[in-house]
């Protein structure tokens, strides 16, 4: 089981589910991180945290601790 925090820079994967408390999970999903969405880690900040993630055509900054809640899978079959 891979999380967004572990995804290599430049690599792509699909969101499988979110393992965050409901209010946080809700906002992450509203920002586009729903099951099946393609994500890609663009880069990390100079100090290693947060991450810049591309999802649904926009760029988001997410802290590693929160990215750990985003569970990934290799394909988009939810």
């Amino acid at each position: 089981m891979q999380t967004l925090a572990e995804l290599e820079i430049g690599a792509e994967a699909y969101v499988s589910r979110l393992d965050a408390p409901p209010p946080d999970a809700q906002r992450l999903m509203e920002m586009g991180l729903t099951a099946g969405a393609k994500v890609r880690v663009m880069r990390q900040a100079p100090l290693g945290d947060p991450l810049e993630v591309a999802v649904r055509g926009c760029r988001l900054s997410i802290r590693r601790a929160d990215a750990q809640a985003v569970i990934l899978s290799g394909d988009d079959h939810v």
């Binding site: 906002r27 926009c58 900054s61 997410i62």
Partner: peptide
């Protein structure tokens, strides 16, 4: 969690 996500 105050700063969940920030758009760039």
């Amino acid at each position: 969690n105050p700063s969940l996500i920030l758009e760039l």
